[in-house]
Design a binder for these strands. Structure first.
Lengths: 212, 212, 212, 212
DNA sequence: TATGAATGAGCCTTCATTCAT
DNA sequence: CATGAATGAAGGCTCATTCAT
């Protein structure tokens, strides 16, 4: 319930401001993500967080500031690397179907790696309202940006005559939904790797829209 | 808990009879579903529920028994009609692709009609734990049963040489995910009806797995 | 729940240490005993307890854990010293009538000193049921143990030909009842000290059973 | 939980105002006494009473008026016959020790017969405060009157040279306590009848105070 | 008489957060 | 950095009681 934290008393001795601080913070954010994903944000108390991290209630506040700020930190954790990779893939200018396959892989790997964080995001982003709207907007913005990349790629495929899609917006929604919904069932110890899943899904979907 | 008492309608004496009780209960369950979907189960207080229903806190308990029982009632609301329709469709014995199209339509219409209830289910079913496990099992069972119908249909298609699927379980998950995820974005006032969406998704997906 | 944490007093860092915690808890338990004795356990709200202790409702829970645990703490308060003294008296091996006089004195002084606690015990021990049965058993066990000491002493007196008692169990019940019932009427500011009462009662009772 | 009440629909048909009413009321009061004795007044809800009597919440109120009025009815049930018998015994003018023996028998039989009611009285009489003080006073008055009878008898014995008592008030308290405390342990199915107990207690006590 | 839906106050408890140490 | 005692609002739920039927 409250084992002695890791650091030795020697290394702890004042001075350098955040040597291990940032790492510890990240670790706490990930633990919070796990608990929030398992039980929900509101159903997880700071006492449970305290027990899971080994820090006392008061000590936690040095790292998290407030419970709600944890939500932001959790969101940022998975959306930033995903967006970065999405833009890199798009910039490579591969053919549309290859680009989509790569995007599917990137998204699926992100979900697999940060499943807890994604779960929290999808279940709790409505929770933020109060006032920190600005910061919440950044997260929503990032989410929409990823969707836009998919959208552009699909339309590029149509323009190049590679895809044939009656309703491009629905294709985006279907494609994303197929993958995103995996946050509900994917397990790291499953028979398929994230890339296996992405490839299988792409083979269903791209064959369905590809011009023959 | 609420079966009709023994006496015939003749013996039934004073005290406004059950006439209306069941309707009122259903109405309350739907209001709860809306609030839970909007703000989350734990973030919705009984005070808010009381305000939304026009009943005092105490009066609510005539209908709900407990806050957690609301979760069950909400689940049952959308899963029972869906399952009934799914079995009816399967029993018709249409060709596999027609069956899948009909199942997609049924599921999509269910999500469109009971979007709040589905949202609550997908976000909160982990919440039930405590002891009503038995009743929770019934819900999980119903959910798995719907999945099994999809699964059987896909495999029937493969057996009949209509579909070509490397990994049948992944096809089920992709197909379901594509549609289920619509709980996150579908709006009743959207440009597409539930059937439009189901048809579009089927055209993507079935073309992708259909043997040519 | 409240054992001393591991570290030595040297390692113990900030946060006002346990120094005082135990004393405060005891004080709270005694205040609760007074209120419970005056108005009854169920009729005393935590608000009243909060007002009487000067702690806010939430703060109380640092010390009590739950309202029901207060019952245990109250019981332990008076039964442990009583039992300890009873065993010490018995071990002295005085003649049976002297032993009984000493036991009566010990019991009567305990009731006088912990009248509130005894009142709560006699009125509310049926209240504990739920699950903390184990702990409840310990209390019942202690109570029976005191009775057993009386019982043994009376039978020793009979065996030694000092007492003459037709029905030894009824003698125990009468002896104990006479003294125990004083929880209903004894006041610390009365004309008689606890020892006065014990002596008077013994003179009635022992003369009644003593062989002539 | 709610079996059909006893009366046939025929006898029930309007008219004669209280034919079975009073009997039913008494029955309800006794059931309430049992529940209050078992669990305490405050811990017993009207729902439990409703379940135990077979009447619905609303119907109960035709008989009881309010929960607190039940306390009065319970008290009156055992104190009135006791007091009547006590006065009858005193008026017979038997020798003091015979009178005491008879009083002990009357009290012990009353406790045995109305153990639940006595328990409720001893545990809950402080509960009545609010305003119905007048009616509560009547009960306290009756209780004191019984004590006074004992007191007078003991002093008569001393005056007649039959008893030798240093502190007459303590004798009364001891004598009464010995018997009254039996509400804590007496069971109707015990090896001893109420009269057995009364006789045994008198033999201890009267021998203790009798002049030799 | 009897019902049971409805009330609204009040109950025990938990919670996120603060702050002296 | 860290502790843990303390806060005070709010949470889910139960209660005695009323009243239209």
């Amino acid at each position: 319930m409250s084992e002695e934290p890791t650091g030795s008393t020697v290394t702890r001795r004042a001075g350098r401001p955040r040597e291990g601080y940032e790492a510890r913070r990240q670790e706490i954010v990930d633990i919070a993500a796990r608990l929030f994903a398992e039980r929900g944000y509101h159903a997880t108390s700071l006492d449970e967080l305290s027990a899971a991290t080994g820090l006392q209630r008061g000590g936690l506040y040095h790292y998290i500031g407030s419970k709600e700020r944890l939500l932001f930190m959790i969101h940022e954790r998975f959306i930033e690397p995903l967006l970065a990779e999405a833009h890199a893939i798009e910039d490579r200018g591969d053919p549309p179907d290859a680009t989509l396959e790569n995007l599917a892989g990137a998204l699926m790997r992100d979900i697999a790696e940060y499943r807890d964080q994604v779960t929290v995001f999808l279940h709790e982003w409505r929770t933020i309202h109060p006032k920190d709207r600005e910061r919440a907007q950044a997260v929503m913005q990032a989410r929409r940006e990823f969707e836009a990349v998919i959208d552009r790629t699909l339309r590029r495929g149509v323009a190049q005559g590679v895809f044939e899609i009656p309703e491009s917006r629905l294709a985006t929604l279907g494609f994303l939904g197929m993958i995103n919904y995996s946050y509900q069932w994917y397990r790291r110890d499953a028979a398929w790797s994230a890339d296996d899943v992405a490839q299988a899904f792409c083979s269903f979907f791209l064959d369905g829209i590809r011009v023959r």
